[in-house]
């Protein structure tokens, strides 16, 4: 998919900060994240645990309140608008979570779970409500006659994830935020759900923010991919471009660490030693500098800003990876 950079983005996130305070310590989970989400695209947000990718997703959906920064949907800033406006706007922005079983109320029937947003907004009753629920269940590949009267415990993880998707789509949102939605599923079921997301995206004209740790999964569904490390974005580029020629040293290491089901793939050794520093006390300057092979003095003193080094390829690094010297 080609992106028209001149088009106005559907969602604009600027300088988003989220910090949590506990026991006198402040964890900077997200420190200045900015990105645009264009209509009809899937933006993958990838990173390791603790990098702040889920917190970013939650702050965008206003499940949690950001410490500072702005999230603009259309022409409304979700961080500053009145609660009643936020409530209305949120129906256009739905979220799907990792654990499909715990995100469904075990004591409610599938038809009521799916219809709950309709009930809240009094937007459909009686036969109309049943019709919409039937349509949504069919759209996610469940048999409405069999599924509607059942409880979540009667379904497998993959089927519960389908129910979650039906619930998220029932208000016809513009944006879907998927937070590790296939991580708990087996490969064969994961493929079903990923294909379903692609189909629904086309059928309902959705724009997707797809948050996951699995590099291959993210590449499969995304048009563009953003890589996150310790609360900041390192690199944002088109999916094929980013995986072919990563320019940030962290992206490069991340890609080299991934395993592929191919016995002839070069058996690379762990390209990164050690573990990410604590977000309680992140390194000065570039947050990756403590593990970066190219780090110099400047990296400790000056925070690298996300800049466009090639068309549609943004990287936050003072010394980006040269195309020639990429690690194998």
């Amino acid at each position: 998919m080609t992106l028209d950079a001149s088009a106005a983005p559907l969602l604009t996130v600027r300088d988003l900060h989220v910090s949590f305070t506990r026991g006198g310590h402040t964890v900077q989970a997200v420190s200045g994240v900015s990105f645009d989400l264009f209509e009809g695209e899937t933006l993958g947000l990838v990173g390791e645990s603790g990098c702040g990718k889920s917190t970013t997703g939650r702050a965008v959906a206003r499940v949690i309140a950001p410490t500072s920064g702005s999230v603009v949907l259309g022409d409304i800033d979700l961080t500053t608008c009145r609660p009643s406006v936020l409530r209305r706007e949120r129906t256009r922005l739905q979220m799907i979570f990792q654990d499909p079983i715990s995100s469904l109320n075990p004591r409610r029937r599938v038809r009521d779970i799916v219809a709950e947003p309709l009930d809240i907004w009094h937007s459909a009753k009686g036969q109309e409500r049943t019709r919409i629920v039937t349509e949504m269940l069919e759209a996610v590949g469940l048999d409405p006659v069999l599924a509607a009267p059942c409880y979540p415990r009667q379904f497998s993880g993959g089927q519960c994830q389908r129910i979650s998707i039906a619930r998220a789509l029932v208000m016809r949102p513009k944006i879907l935020i998927c937070d590790e939605m296939v991580s708990a599923l087996d490969v064969s079921i994961q493929a079903q759900i990923l294909n379903l997301v692609e189909d629904l995206k086309a059928a309902y004209g959705l724009t997707v923010l797809f948050i996951a740790h699995d590099l291959a999964v993210v590449k499969n569904v995304s048009d563009r991919v953003a890589v996150m490390y310790l609360g900041r974005l390192c690199e944002v580029a088109g999916a094929d471009d980013l995986y072919r020629s990563p320019r940030h040293h962290y992206t490069n290491a991340l890609l080299a660490s991934a395993v592929e089901p191919d016995p002839d793939a070069p058996r690379t050794h762990a390209p990164l030693q050690g573990e990410p520093p604590s977000p309680l006390n992140p390194p000065s300057g570039c947050r990756f500098r403590t593990r970066c092979p190219r780090a110099e003095e400047r990296c400790a003193t000056e925070v690298p800003e996300l800049r466009e080094i090639e068309p549609n390829h943004h990287v936050a690094c003072h010394f980006p990876v040269e195309i020639r010297d990429r690690a194998a």
Partner: peptide, 21 residues
């Protein structure tokens, strides 16, 4: 093998999902 997404494939490659369970 066919249902596993691969980094080597272009994005939006259709996965061969296994139906049922």
């Amino acid at each position: 093998l066919h249902s596993t997404p691969r980094m080597g494939n272009p994005s939006h490659t259709r996965l061969a999902a296994i139906d049922g369970r």
